[in-house]
Design a protein around this nucleic acid. Structure first.
Length: 1143
RNA sequence: GGAAAUAUAGCUCAAUGGUUAGAGUAGCACCCUUAUACGGUGUCGGUUAAAGGUUCAAGUCCUUUUAUUUCCA
């Protein structure tokens, strides 16, 4: 017996199937049952388990899962090692929050050891929830043996890679201005700045400052700038970061930009002043009414400030002009000599501000570069150890030398909420503005809205800040990165060529350093103030150098003891490579000086980008496993990973392919040019139904667990995949989920239920020999043909990473063809057919369809597909697989595909549809039989085609017969349409005229074209062939006619009394079937029927007695004059009582 | 400021440069059904974001603009 269900409960199905998988280790078997020498490699991008998963994870992981399952069906062994990203700032911040400490407290209030222990715990905090989601959504990934980035083995591989780079001079220490987060005390990599939500619109205080020009300088423009001795001429420069003004060291202009000098008054001090700014921006600062207004009449505070244009010049003419330092807290000889002057820069625009850029070299990457190029020194102070440091310290506060603002945070956001709300609180930017206004140094102060980068986790604005850092010289392999990227198949392509490709073209070196505690330590040891350094590439190397250090006799007693303990611990394999332990390792340089570890950690993105090697602890062990799983055939992540994981994977792989002999060897063996992955799907975002970003704060985020519980994982996956291509953003709408559940799964479930209902009655177990395809009826051959076509299409779509197209094709087949045509038209064969072979054929055909669909859909809807497959296969035992996921992808058989058949079935569907539409138009319902339809014949094959599907049309539309008419009958009106594609090539520019001529053809012209096969147009300039046009029968005058494309159908609407009787019989059958149903009779129950005695109905019944009895399984139909029980029904306007009883 | 994607019916999506831009869904009306879940037929709904251009022919190709989203500066 096939399993029968009361109703469809996808959610429950999911749970049941999940239990089954677990109990029978189906996932393990799906790998072990495939040959190891036929691998398909997938890399799992490690999630960080310190946050809750969201619905977008379901989307991303569904995509990963689909292709892995598909490749398994295709016979590949698809190992997928899970992984956890365990290092990094998010974890540290979570720990700091839960412990109630800040970064400064580490090493003081809490030891680094305790802190890192806390991180180690924090890191796996949500592991259980993640694992739960992974299971519930049906994502198959190896959770038993995941790679974990904090393990010593993992770190050792990272060290090995770094050493490979180091040896080839691809790892170096440098000094740059970088995005820096004072709160977390660390620089941010470009990958981190790339996190969603980094750039935010903020309102900052912007100042247009007056840089007073020195009067005692030699410069060609002096006479123009200072027309009289008392004139006060200033250069206006604009900034949105007033806190950088004390560090100003230069002003940058665009050499080709036009500038002007304008005489006016300062709006705050009302003192006369002459200002220099870009010509294009004059209107931003000066009102038209003020132009050339009287200077004499101006009184302090007047709204209209008079101004006049006094001169104009190019930017290049301004170069070299010297000005007084704006906020002279810190200066020295070098600065006085080389700073505070006008320099050129290519990044200056006239979009905003004044067209002159205030430049503080140490607080802007562009500024830094421009100053360096022009030999302008930076404004720096010396700290207690004599090291040069900026005017803003690492906490984001002004140093003591900036007396007025010493100790103040430069950004308002760095204060606590309480501090900011305290009475009298003023942001530092505002304080600076006030000071400048009073000192006659501000020309304009206002709030300015712009987008500014924020730290992706602390949510506070970053600073651009000068930092020491270790870099990977990615620019050295730029050409190779670009070239190899072109060999990668990106879905969608534009992400690879555009977003990723353009970025590679403009690559900068990868800033690797992080000044934190929980992460992979940089394995570099350096002398305190000397040039010697050592990069460690393995634990063994560390041991060797430790041994050498211990034996060198150059270390202090304490250091030596420490090293000894560490060495012992390393030998016992119980040493943790993290800080603080690793920091205690002191090595000895070749000249005999102690070397200490560089305190930096490395970027966590390096951790994840190195997973192809580190997950196997390559090259220290598992060389064979690595070789079998390198490079990845397929990876998938969100598009936001383009410059994250996708980049780090690519960069490390390409660099290793040129630096590492080990990797070169493997590449050669597996035929890899040096990439980490061959195919990559970058999926879009999941938005809410209105297209807004989902966020917990706004409360519009869909919870993945609730969604799965309510709609099931299958429905969620199917919905996400079928609705939009993976790389398009998905507007997540619950109504869509419901629709998928109802329409697709509902229809499929019903088809199964229908099959089972009769298969159980007839004990169909597919034990009979296969009915040869050519012996099966048309309709069976047809659906089998379509099924094969579908298998081929779906196969191609999956292979091309187009899951959406696959899902849509399957859905269309199930809904439009299988359920609503095949089953609908074949129903009677299952329960009425006397011909046992016909019935068998029907069963076998429908069974094949269902099993095939189960396989085709299984990558996307793994639970339901498996239930369907198992329920069917359990009874028939046709296949030996215990799960659809262990089966193989349906094979495509060309011999089973019959395009002609598919076409004529389409014809049958179209004709039926037209007839039904005609019936609707004239108001004759389908239960009323009609005598015939007329079909105009346009070509010979048409009639032949229709004849073969005639019975289907007739039964579907309840018509008695089809008559074919040719135009010789004389009354078909024809229409001719130009075939533009063919004609376009032929007539080109005359298309319009030719098309018009053709449309104007008379019936005679058309007839001539049909008989002769050609007709001249446009004064015989062109000869129109019958292949250049399409001739259709448009109308049959006097008949009810409907058209669809070339097809025309005319309906005979006369109802003879006999037809009427038959119609009434059908009405009666319909009422009685309804009663059977409402009485709850089984479909096999026989009944007796009693009816009110009405002559009209009795006549109808008598004429069609055997037909009626057969339809309703009645043994007898009796007419009773005095019937007073049963249901009242109205047939053809006559009220009768119907009473039925089960025998 | 730069790069990329998207823009078609109320909504979700189609449409190798070639007929009158189609489906589904939602709404309305009618119908069918021994699958009770669907389904059918009709109806309603479009300046294909805007403006130019190329072409015999543009939703489709090109240019510009606008909006949304993402990434970078």
């Amino acid at each position: 017996m096939y399993k029968e269900y009361k109703q469809l409960n996808l959610s429950q199905t999911g749970k049941d199937v999940l239990d089954f998988w677990k109990k029978h280790n189906i996932f393990e078997k799906s790998i072990s049952s495939r040959p190891a020498n036929n691998p398909y490699t997938f890399y799992e991008g490690p999630p960080s388990a310190n946050g809750m998963p969201g619905i977008h994870h379901v989307m991303a992981r569904a995509i990963k899962d689909i292709f892995c399952r598909y490749k398994t069906l295709k016979g590949y062994q698809v190992k997928r090692k899970g992984g956890w990203d365990t290092h990094g700032l998010p974890i540290e911040l979570a720990v700091e929050k839960s412990l109630g400490i800040t970064k400064d407290d580490i090493g003081k209030k809490i030891s680094v050891k305790d802190y890192n222990d806390a991180c180690r715990k924090e890191v796996m905090r949500y592991t259980d929830i993640w694992n739960d989601l992974t299971e519930k959504m049906g994502y198959w990934v190896d959770l038993e043996n995941p790679y974990i980035t904090y393990k010593n083995e993992y770190i050792e591989t990272l060290w090995w890679i770094l050493k490979e780079f180091y040896n080839k001079d691809l790892l170096y220490k440098g000094y740059t201005v970088q995005p820096y987060s004072p709160k977390s005390g660390t620089g941010l990599s470009s990958h981190e700045l790339n996190q969603p939500g980094t750039y935010k619109i903020v309102r900052d205080t912007s100042i247009t400052a007056q840089f007073h020009l020195k009067t005692d300088q030699q410069h060609p423009l002096m006479s123009l700038l200072f027309e009289d001795k008392n004139e006060d001429t200033v250069i206006l420069a604009w900034t949105t970061t007033p806190w950088t003004l004390p560090s100003n060291c230069a002003l940058a202009v665009g050499e080709k930009i036009d500038y002007v000098k304008i005489r006016t008054f300062n709006p705050y001090t009302y003192e006369p002043v002459s200002v220099v700014l870009a010509k294009d921006l004059v209107a931003k600062y000066f009102k038209a009414e003020g132009e050339n207004a009287s200077f004499q009449d101006y009184k302090a505070g007047d709204k209209i400030i008079p101004w006049e244009l006094r001169g104009s010049f190019k930017g290049v003419e301004l170069l070299g002009l010297r000005y007084h330092q704006l906020m002279p807290y810190v200066t020295n000889e070098d600065l006085e000599k080389n700073a505070f002057r006008v320099i050129p820069a290519d990044f200056v625009t006239t979009e905003d501000g004044t067209g002159i850029v205030h430049t503080a070299s140490i607080f802007g990457a562009d500024d830094f570069r421009a100053c360096k190029e022009n030999g302008v020194p930076s404004v720096m102070v010396k700290d207690e150890s004599g090291k040069e440091v900026p005017l803003v310290n690492k906490q984001g506060r002004f140093v003591d030398e900036v007396t007025d603002f010493a100790g103040l945070y430069v950004k308002e956001e760095y204060y606590t909420k309480e501090e900011r709300e305290a009475p009298g609180f003023k942001a530092t930017d505002v304080l600076i503005s006030i000071k400048l206004k009073t000192e006659n140094k501000a020309f304009d102060v206002k709030k300015y809205e712009h987008s500014y980068p924020h730290s992706w986790r602390t949510d506070e604005p970053i600073l651009y800040y000068p930092l020491d850092s270790w870099f990977i010289r990615t620019t050295a392999v730029k050409d190779k990165l670009v070239a190899l990227n072109k060999t990668i198949n990106w879905k969608p392509e534009s992400t690879g060529t555009g977003r990723f490709g353009n970025w590679l073209e403009n690559l900068v070196d990868w800033n690797l350093s992080r000044s934190r505690y929980w992460g992979t330590p940089l394995p570099i040891w350096r002398e305190e103030n000397g040039p010697e350094e050592k990069c460690i590439g393995s634990i063994q190397e560390l041991k060797d150098l430790l041994t050498a250090a211990v034996n060198s006799g150059r270390l202090s007693q304490k250091e030596q003891e420490k090293d000894k303990t560490i060495l012992q611990s390393l030998n016992n394999s119980d040493f943790d490579l993290h800080r603080p332990y690793i920091d205690e390792v002191v090595l000895v340089s070749s000249s005999g000086k102690p070397m200490y570890r560089e305190p930096d950690l490395i970027d966590v993105w390096f951790d994840s980008g190195a997973m192809p090697y580190a997950q196997w602890h390559f090259p220290f062990e598992n060389k064979e496993q690595f070789k079998n799983a390198y490079p990845a055939d397929f990876i998938a992540e969100g598009v936001d990973q383009t410059r994250g994981w996708f980049f780090t994977l690519h960069a490390i792989a390409v660099m290793l392919s040129v630096t590492s002999e080990e990797v070169k060897k493997v590449n050669k063996e597996v035929g890899n040019k040096g990439v980490a992955f061959k195919n990559v799907v970058s999926n879009g975002l999941v938005l809410d139904k209105n297209g807004n970003k989902m966020s917990k704060r706004l409360g519009n985020a869909a919870d993945p667990f609730e969604t799965i519980e309510k709609y099931s994982a299958d429905a969620a996956r199917w919905y996400m995949i079928s609705n939009a291509a993976p790389w398009d953003n998905l507007k997540f709408n619950e109504e869509g989920l419901d629709e998928v559940r109802r329409k697709f799964f509902g229809t499929l479930y019903n088809t199964y239920t229908f099959f089972v209902l009769y298969a159980n009655i007839d004990k169909f177990k597919y034990s009979e020999p296969e009915v040869a395809i050519e012996k099966r009826p048309e309709i069976d051959q047809w659906i089998i043909s379509l099924l094969n076509t579908l298998s081929k299409e779906v196969d191609a779509f999956y292979a091309d990473f187009e899951p959406t197209k696959a899902a849509r094709a399957i859905q269309d087949f199930v809904d439009a063809h299988l359920s609503n045509w095949y089953v609908r038209l074949s129903r009677r064969r299952f329960w009425k057919s006397d011909d046992s072979e016909d019935k068998l054929s029907a069963y076998q055909t429908l069974y094949t369809c269902l099993v095939t669909i189960a396989k085709l859909m299984s990558p996307i809807a793994p639970f339901f597909a498996d239930r369907l497959y198992i329920d069917l296969n359990k009874v028939t035992k046709k296949e030996q697989f215990e799960s659809v996921h262990l089966a193989y992808f349906p094979e495509y058989h060309t011999s089973l595909v019959n395009k002609k058949l598919e076409q004529r079935m389409q014809l049958a569907q179209d004709i039926s549809s037209l007839v039904l539409s005609l019936r609707k138009k004239v108001g004759i319902n389908v239960r009323q039989p009609l005598s015939k339809i007329l079909l105009p014949i346009l070509d010979k094959s048409f009639k032949h085609q229709v004849e073969q599907v005639k019975d289907l049309i007739l039964s579907e539309t309840n018509i008695k017969g089809i008559e074919y008419i040719t135009d010789t009958t004389g009354f078909i009106k024809k229409k001719v349409k130009p075939n533009f594609k063919v004609l376009g090539a032929k007539v080109g520019k005359d298309m319009k005229a030719v098309a018009e001529a053709i449309t104007n053809f008379t019936q005679e012209d058309i007839a001539k074209l049909e008989t002769d096969g050609e007709i001249p147009v446009l004064d015989t300039r062109y000869l129109i062939l019958s292949t250049d046009v399409e001739i259709i029968a448009e109308d049959v005058p006097g008949w009810q006619v409907a058209n669809l494309g070339k097809l025309t159908v005319a309906l005979d609407v006369t109802i003879t009394s006999q037809l009427k009787q038959e119609g009434n019989s059908r009405e009666l059958i319909n009422r009685i079937q309804g009663l059977r149903k409402s009485n709850g009779y089984e479909v096999t129950d026989k009944i007796n029927v009693r009816l009110s005695n009405h002559s009209h109905i009795r006549e109808a019944v008598t004429d069609n007695l055997s037909y009626i009895c057969a339809e309703i399984l009645a043994e007898s139909i009796l007419f009773e004059n005095e019937l007073n029980e049963g249901e009242l029904a109205t047939i053809d306007g006559i009220e009768i009582l119907i009473a039925i009883s089960k025998i």
